[in-house]
Design a protein around this nucleic acid. Structure first.
Lengths: 241, 241
DNA sequence: CTTGACATTGAACATATGTTCGTGTATTAT
DNA sequence: ATAATACACGAACATATGTTCAATGTCAAG
């Protein structure tokens, strides 16, 4: 069977090069078909195929169903590798541009109420307030579906989260083992932040604070996952008891 | 007949602001309808109308019939307008410099050892490792003397700081009441993070966790303040018990 | 040679998105 | 008031653009 070489093929490189060039020239990204033209491929599906690969390899990022949403994350070194200085400069240039991500603060998170979700699926942008985060602090991909909440009250201390902290989360309705999630528990009528573990016949919610015991939930339906926690930020502003 | 005010209306400003923000967040431009949403306008034609005006005034540029092709040419200054050159300089300066601050990670912070301080006073910029922080997250002034430490072990849980967290601190040998400091306590032989309060005849060290009691230190000399804590960052990487 | 993973094609499809147009409502100069 | 201009709405439209699928080609390992 045919094996694919690891890394980038010639086509991959050409696409990356084209993306950068096009973006540089026009200020926006090319469409699938335009990318196809650049490598003499007439079928859009093949381009899609390549783009998916590039995305999986972390070179680009794109938003589903959104026109011209391809972004170059990682510049590709042309052909061979270029000695240090030059490629460093390259890298910096691209860093400068893409490094800040602005995340809307959707509201406050309190133990006694479900968490507010950003209005509509879209990245709604009602000024309001937002936090700027360096992209390097975020888990690489998927900058979409991120939103932030400000923690209100001391009820999350067992999650190692304090009053005033800012929690950056990603929208989600399910979670994998070991991920920290914001969940609403029907039977307790409260929202908490816990590490999520699906075990035989039950779900274990483990507090971040290693000194505290887990909570077990037998009925998965009494649990509503609101999102995955991605980042917690605490700005010390000289306060506290 | 109705005359239009020269310059930008409130809506124009909002649109410009939205364009920049959206572009910053998503890496591509918004669609006409998304722009509409941002200013609570349901008709796409009106947005088109505004965009044409902005284009004529030279603030943006767009390509006919091409999705999400709006580019911001000239940033809008809040309030009044600043003459050309100056605002250009402004733009560049604020974009390139003001946004990101790179802070060196000086080492690890453990309860059982004094904290490592950055070599030499200079903000040495030697690869090693560093964290990028949006300037907006830092207490405005004095970006100098900042350094970061990675927390090792669970010994800081009563400071609401967990294993793996990154603590950004500012060099200091004294502190004001209410500031969170990293201190080395001679008699206990350990480093901790606590809120600092100088009281009559003693010093009170208050843990961040509101459920825990303070520590009192009678002899100020047995206490060495290493720095003030400015920011705590926790990246959730899907782990834990 | 056969097989199965990879590569490619072309076409159909769904919808996201810019454009146009007819109409309606303010605002203000004359 | 009248008229001209600016602002606003929403629907209809055309098409630009991403997605999907079935079919076919390719090539190296078994």
């Amino acid at each position: 069977m045919a094996r694919r070489q690891p890394g980038l093929s010639e086509r991959h490189r050409k696409i990356m090069e084209f993306l950068v060039k096009f973006q540089n020239t026009n200020g926006y990204s090319p469409s699938i078909r335009q990318i196809g033209d650049s490598i003499n491929v007439k079928s859009t599906s093949l381009v899609d195929y390549y783009l998916n690969q590039l995305q999986e390899m972390g070179y680009i990022e794109r938003a589903d169903h959104i026109s011209r949403s391809v972004r170059v994350l990682q510049p590709v070194q042309p052909g061979f590798s270029i000695p240090g200085k030059v490629s460093d400069a390259f890298k910096n240039a691209s860093n400068m541009l893409a490094d800040l991500v602005s995340i809307p603060i959707a509201g406050r998170i309190v133990a006694s109420a479900p968490i507010p979700m950003p209005v509509s699926d879209l990245n709604y942008y009602d000024a309001e307030s937002s936090v700027d985060i360096a992209r390097s602090l975020l888990p690489a991909k998927e900058i979409n579906d991120l939103f932030a909440l400000e923690v209100s009250g001391d009820s999350m201390v067992d999650a190692m989260v304090n009053d005033g902290d800012i929690v950056v989360m990603k929208k989600a309705e399910s979670a994998n083992n070991g991920e920290m999630v914001a969940v609403w528990m029907d039977d307790r009528d409260e929202t908490t932040l816990k590490y999520f573990y699906k075990e035989a016949g039950r779900i274990r919610l483990q507090p971040a604070n290693p000194n505290m015991g887990p909570i077990y939930v037998q009925n998965p339906k009494s649990l509503r996952i609101m999102g995955k926690v991605v980042l917690v930020i605490r700005q010390i502003k000289s306060v506290a008891g």
